[in-house]
Amino acid sequence: MARTLEELDAIVADLQDRSAIRDVLMRYSRGVDRLDRDLLLSVYHPDAIDDHGVFIGTAEAFADWAIGMHTTTHVSHQHAIFNISIDLDGDVAHTESYYMFVGLNREGKPLTMGGGRYMDRFEKRDGRWAIAARVCLRDWAQLDAVPEHLDQSAMTAVKGLAPQVIEAMRTGPQPARDRSDPSYDRPLVVDPRRSTSG
């Protein structure tokens, strides 16, 4: 079946948008793993909010926090992106990206491992796709033993975190195995009142 020029143009535009969004997601991993602040900031719009559970705030504050935390905590680390779902709607896209993180620790256990998903609201502004809002959900983490109850109260046992950070993790977005999961939120919004960046 032959396609019209208009149909072909629409297909090419869709593929270009999806490719640009995937490039942003890959650039995020490279920026955070190379501790490259400029590269990391290039994936966000200037007014973006990132809710990483233990950190909630602006893109600039997130970049400073992430680079500081990884520099202090890890000798090296990798963020790998796997499955990517992209829901395009004009100049807005909602994405869900599965990730796995491994860090070579400076102290304590040799490795820290975890996996989860990035939920992003992308916006195309002046022809540039970038993240406008991000929610990071942790679906699993390396444990020494299986806890009796895998519920939110277990977060209070996390040592070394300030009480307000623990509260932000407890009351923030939580993964779910149904349509209450934040990956279904449209539009994805991060409440700036939850900010831990001051």
Rank of each mutant, 00 (worst) to 15 (best):
residue 123 E to M: 00
residue 136 C to N: 10
residue 59 A to P: 12
residue 89 D to P: 11
residue 139 D to E: 02
residue 112 T to C: 06
residue 105 N to M: 03
residue 104 L to R: 12
residue 37 R to K: 15
residue 143 L to S: 11
residue 99 Y to F: 02
residue 68 G to D: 11
residue 74 H to R: 14
residue 74 H to W: 14
residue 182 P to Q: 12
residue 138 R to Q: 07
residue 161 L to I: 10
residue 119 M to E: 02
residue 78 Q to C: 15
residue 137 L to I: 07
residue 98 Y to R: 08
residue 121 R to D: 00
residue 8 L to F: 02
residue 92 V to M: 07
residue 97 S to F: 03
residue 167 E to R: 08
residue 181 D to Y: 06
residue 72 T to N: 12
residue 89 D to N: 12
residue 10 A to M: 04
residue 38 D to L: 13
residue 15 L to T: 01
residue 12 V to K: 06
residue 131 I to E: 06
residue 40 L to P: 03
residue 97 S to N: 09
residue 49 I to H: 07
residue 134 R to C: 03
residue 94 H to K: 02
residue 180 S to I: 02
residue 2 A to Q: 11
residue 87 D to Y: 01
residue 74 H to L: 12
residue 56 I to V: 13
residue 11 I to Q: 04
residue 143 L to D: 11
residue 133 A to C: 08
residue 88 L to T: 04
residue 85 S to A: 00
residue 141 A to S: 03
residue 58 T to W: 09
residue 147 P to N: 11
residue 61 A to F: 03
residue 166 I to K: 13
residue 28 Y to F: 14
residue 187 P to F: 13
residue 50 D to C: 02
residue 144 D to W: 12
residue 34 R to L: 15
residue 85 S to R: 07
residue 193 R to L: 06
residue 18 R to H: 01
residue 42 S to W: 14
residue 115 G to C: 09
residue 4 T to E: 10
residue 55 F to A: 01
residue 147 P to I: 08
residue 4 T to G: 08
residue 23 D to N: 14
residue 62 F to W: 11
residue 176 A to S: 03
residue 172 G to I: 04
residue 144 D to C: 08
residue 109 K to A: 14
residue 132 A to W: 15
residue 168 A to K: 10
residue 170 R to C: 04
residue 30 R to N: 10
residue 48 A to R: 07
residue 115 G to P: 15
residue 71 T to G: 15
residue 126 D to P: 12
residue 155 M to T: 11
residue 45 H to S: 12
residue 193 R to Q: 05
residue 23 D to C: 06
residue 113 M to T: 09
residue 185 D to I: 07
residue 20 A to R: 00
residue 141 A to R: 15
residue 146 V to W: 14
residue 181 D to S: 04
residue 182 P to L: 04
residue 84 I to T: 13
residue 172 G to R: 00
residue 32 V to T: 12
residue 133 A to E: 10
residue 196 T to V: 09
residue 64 D to H: 15
residue 20 A to L: 06
residue 67 I to E: 15
residue 101 F to V: 03
residue 36 D to K: 15
residue 56 I to D: 04
residue 83 N to Q: 04
residue 167 E to D: 10
residue 109 K to I: 02
residue 159 K to Q: 15
residue 101 F to N: 02
residue 173 P to Y: 03
residue 152 Q to C: 03
residue 123 E to L: 01
residue 97 S to G: 00
residue 44 Y to V: 10
residue 126 D to C: 11
residue 114 G to C: 05
residue 192 P to F: 08
residue 39 L to T: 12
residue 172 G to D: 06
residue 100 M to S: 07
residue 103 G to K: 08
residue 20 A to E: 05
residue 142 Q to F: 13
residue 115 G to E: 01
residue 148 E to H: 09
residue 166 I to R: 13
residue 100 M to V: 01
residue 165 V to I: 13
residue 92 V to H: 04
residue 195 S to A: 14
residue 89 D to G: 06
residue 146 V to D: 12
residue 88 L to S: 05
residue 164 Q to Y: 07
residue 182 P to S: 07
residue 65 W to T: 08
residue 84 I to Q: 11
